[in-house]
Write a protein that binds this DNA or RNA. Sequence first.
RNA 1: GGAGAGGUGGCCGAGCGGUCGAAGGCGGCAGUCUUGAAAACUGCAGAAGUCGAAAGGCUUCCAGGGGUUCGAAUCCCUUCCUCUCCGCCA
Length: 427
Amino acid sequence: MLDAAFIRDHMEEVRAGLRHRGIDPDKALQEIATLETARRRMIPEVEGLKRQQNASGDEIARAKRHGQDIGPVQEASRLRAQQIKQLGTQLDAIEGQRNRALLQIPNLPHATVPVGKSAADNVEVRRRGEPRTFDFEAKPHWELGEALGILDFERAARIAGARFAVLFGAGARLERALINFMLDLHTRQHGYREVEPPVMVNAAALTGTGNLPKFEADLFKIAGDWDLYLVPTAEVPLTNLHRGEILDGRELPIRYTAYTPCFRSEAGSYGQDVRGLIRQHQFDKVELVKLTTPEQSYGELESLVANAETVLDLLELPYRTVLLCTGDMGFASAKTYDLEVWLPSQKTYREISSCSNTEAFQARRANIKYRAGGTGKPEFVHTLNGSGLAIGRTLIAIVENYQQKDGSVVIPPALRPFMDGREVIEP
RNA sequence: GGAGAGGUGGCCGAGCGGUCGAAGGCGGCAGUCUUGAAAACUGCAGAAGUCGAAAGGCUUCCAGGGGUUCGAAUCCCUUCCUCUCCGCCA
């Protein structure tokens, strides 16, 4: 959420930022400006009446103590009370409308974000590892996985439906090894605190991160008399851990990592990546979240990206790091780097991590503040999040990049300690 | 699922419908004292909104929402949460 006062005072800047995202902001911004003006006109009026009402309350109390007649004052007070209630209702309506409108506005892109319309305008900032050359036709992971007996989509469809998968044996073990490998790395080497959060969250939490109210269609909602959704990413519970708190600035930055399953309805994605593990309703992910001061947030974004890159470096998977352009960024983000891993079967780089600084966008929605030095005036923190990494897609990358002509898959050396020293998965 | 007890400032904990943003304690910050620290003493300390150039003023906030009343932390309704006991259960 943007700050209403900021929109009022920096209308042109806001307009330009939103236009770079490819949306026409005039109508929405005009509505917010109008409501904000009306709100600020009404507030002094209502508060003036309340002040009078408080004064007459004191007067009545005093008169009563002295046994004086309070009839006339009380009558005036009664009428004023009605007026206050009526104006208060109007003011609440205006404020509610303003806030609902504000929740629909995406974050503004940071000045260092390239202006562009689509993924084609993203800027590659780094490329590491050389895509391997195969002396045979590289197979897609679903063929390899099914042949190895570690991946089963048909049985998954039987028990759940399309876009689900079952892992068996070494596949299930590989998934678990990746989770442990990443959590160990981030907690031991990168300074994150491990968290095991709920994977069902309420609407307030989802509003805090920006998933609601606008993107409800992407979520799985729990049926029955529950205000609960399955988490689309651990970013939601982790970022909301401190919702409504004022943190001591000396404790920042706070760094959390969590493994959770993630659930996405992927509404509107029909026809994309229908085969294999790329796009599933349920997938595992190790997430990284930071709460920082505004001063340090962009430094922390770079180190967060580096933390995620380290995973790919250690697994010796070829990848590139891409700075998303204004038109390709998520709703809450001010600046996003994607990590894209090389998939031999597709002969292309595919997203495996997305790392964003949302600045105060989520903090304002979730009301997360800090006091500089523990004593200053409360200010909004900056929140960051990134995948470190998506487990399922990492498994895909390993299976495809480490495949051999006979259909077996070599386990990356860094992962072998998590696989009882096993070096290869074969039929 | 059944029965009961609660939710007050960073924490604990008082609070007859009016003078309560809220006693007291702990913790925090600053100072006095001290070579330093501790102790003791003194003082300062919540958040949001709004007006104002500022100083400062005003309004709101005692889990959330609604109601009664001239006036609600205090009375009523409701939702949520916590705790205890019983039942069920990984």
